[in-house]
């Protein structure tokens, strides 16, 4: 399973980089989304893919019985999903505006400040 996930994550990274290297800014955003998803999947995989119960302590007890999933990795992924969501929402607005202002979505036309 871990091997499969590793291949999947590698594909994600590769696809993300490929999309980011295209000329269209829309594909650039798709690349960025794939990239953040790849990183999240990576954390999910390296934190250990065990079959555990949800890490919630039942009412009235102090410990979880049996193997539980690692809550820290979940918290990290959740946080980075939220951050990625916010940042990408911003990127979409930015690109929408940029396309309106520059009148193109071709990265090669956006060289005015280089």
């Amino acid at each position: 399973m871990t091997t499969l996930m590793a291949i999947l994550i590698g594909t994600f990274y590769a696809a993300a980089i490929y999309m980011m290297l295209r000329r269209s800014v829309v594909k650039l955003v798709i690349g960025l989304i794939l990239l953040s998803n790849a990183a999240n999947l990576l954390i999910f995989t390296v934190a250990g893919m065990d079959r555990g119960i949800p890490p919630l302590i039942p009412k009235g007890e102090l410990l979880i019985e049996g193997p539980a999933a690692d809550p820290l990795a979940q918290a990290v992924i959740l946080t980075s999903i939220v951050i990625g969501f916010g940042v990408l929402a911003f990127a979409v607005v930015l690109i929408h505006r940029a396309c309106e202002v520059v009148q193109t979505d071709d990265m090669n036309e956006m060289k005015g400040t280089d």
Partner: peptide
């Protein structure tokens, strides 16, 4: 607030 800022900005456009 954050989500609606984004949504409204796009809708406004």
């Amino acid at each position: 607030g954050t989500v609606l800022t984004v949504v409204f900005t796009l809708a406004e456009a």
